[in-house]
């Protein structure tokens, strides 16, 4: 009789503000759980081994390659995907900037690029050009949209910084 591993296990995770209970085989990646089990196909499978960044999502606020995270590791954790960025019909500044700058050509790496930049701006509302370049260095783009991705990142960083300044005027650009 062939040896068999453990069967599917239940996992509870919050994705884009909704809590789901999934039953997934232990080997299923977060990427596949999002795409196959939840129908959230924004994150893309390109290399499936942590090289390209097209599957980038936010896990507890950190940008991660979802192809390198197992779904079972996400018990009790919070995931945000590109589908969750839209708020009351309004796009996130990174999304707006991608449209304005034509930062998406074929669009396949785009959700990953956006999630990587969004995580950067969440953590550092005053991100510099170099921060942006280093952030998207982990997200490959075969169409070569890089100049416009970086330009979009800069524009979005400006919007986010302005909003942060407006929210906390007492900080007065102290870089808190």
């Amino acid at each position: 009789m062939e040896r068999r591993g453990p069967g599917p296990v239940p996992v509870r995770m919050t994705v884009n503000g909704v809590t789901y209970e999934l039953t997934v085989p232990p080997r299923r990646t977060l990427l596949d759980a999002l795409r196959e089990d939840l129908g959230l196909t924004g994150a893309k499978r390109v290399c499936d081994e942590g090289t390209c960044g097209a599957c980038t999502v936010s896990l507890d606020g950190q940008a991660v390659y979802s192809c390198l995270v197992l779904a079972v590791e996400c018990e009790g954790r919070t995931v945000e995907t590109v589908e969750g960025l839209i708020r009351d019909g309004e796009l996130h500044p990174v999304q707006e900037a991608f449209i304005e700058h034509d930062a998406a050509q074929c669009g396949f790496c785009t959700p990953g690029q956006i999630m990587a930049l969004k995580a950067l701006l969440d953590q550092n509302p005053r991100a510099s050009l170099e921060d942006i370049r280093q952030t998207v260095a982990g997200n490959l783009c075969r169409c070569g949209a890089y100049p416009k991705i970086i330009a979009a990142g800069l524009t979005a960083a400006g919007v986010v910084a302005a909003r942060a300044a407006a929210k906390a005027p007492e900080d007065g650009g102290a870089g808190a």
């Binding site: 196909t41 590109v82 796009l91 999304q95 991608f98 998406a104 669009g107 785009t110």
Partner: peptide
């Protein structure tokens, strides 16, 4: 002009064959 399908691409709703 920005692309007419840019919004679909940045929101993850553009449906590729993979999807």
């Amino acid at each position: 002009l920005p692309r007419v399908d840019a919004r679909a691409k940045v929101t993850g709703t553009a449906r590729f064959t993979h999807d």
